[in-house]
Amino acid sequence: MASARVGTAVRGAIDPGGARPGTAGRSSRRLTLRRREALVAYASLLPAFLLVAVIIWYPVTHSLYYSFTAWNGATAPWVGWENYQRIVTNGELWLLLRNNFIFVAAVPGILLISLVVTVLLFEEVPGWRFFRSVYYLPTILSAAVVGTLMRIIFSAQGAANDVLGRAGLERLQHDWLGSVPTAFMVLIFAFYWQTLGQGVLIFLAGMAAIPTDLFDAARLDGAGWWNRLTRIIVPLLVPTIAYFVLTNVIWIFVGLFALVFTVTKGGPGYATTPFDLMIYRKAFEAGEMGYASALSVILFVIVLAISAVQLRTFDRLTTDV
């Protein structure tokens, strides 16, 4: 009986439609309460909503408007689609896309390295304690610091060539930042170095959620290190991998600026100039803010589309798992 009373009480509390005869007053009070709660909820959301509207949507809509003008900071005459036409016809769009996609193509590499390092740390290989204490250091350095460091190391008169020279390997000395392939290599190396800590941290957190008896059982069944990585860890880490890939691909489109600006300044030529650096150059160096706004709008659409595709893909993968 006691359990029946409890059951009724609970049902009454969670089912507003389940009011018994003679309880109309209490029902209307609950409705008022609900409405009040809704009001409180909306009122609580309002500041955040206003903040987002002012800080994000106002600039976004303004950028959209300015992308149809020749805004130079002082005047903004309407030019229609001219900025977009220029971006497509002067070859800039394809160059920037190529540069960004070269970095995107480097994401699987850092994903694999992060996974391997994570597993090594997880399995407590010799020296894991030391590595665990230092692996995150590059991540806390700002991109400008990492970039300056890379520039010092890889400039023609830098430490890398100096070391090669002292080691009697003069033939390997190279103008690392002056030629396109090696400039990309330096940038991707810097990107890997800075991202490794973030990747390992995320994957360690993901692995902590995997039951250890799964690994024990796999070991008992004779599964080797590679099999455990590919058959247990990777499938169970799909949501974590999805998060890592998604955030890094977005970062490549909107966050490379500081690194590239400090290492190569987008050169040689425009060979390593990503979208966000070109937006900065056009807006603030050339004063073509309308053109830069059009580039921003295109970048927004690209990131939106790529994120949507990735999310859908990973949703499907996660569901399958």
């Binding site: 400039s155 023609a156 008169q157 000395q173």
Partner: peptide, 16 residues
């Protein structure tokens, strides 16, 4: 010329 002229920051060559 000393290698890397094309990426050497402006007004820094003379110091070499």
């Amino acid at each position: 010329t000393v290698p890397g002229a094309e990426t050497m920051p402006g007004d820094s060559a003379f110091r070499q």
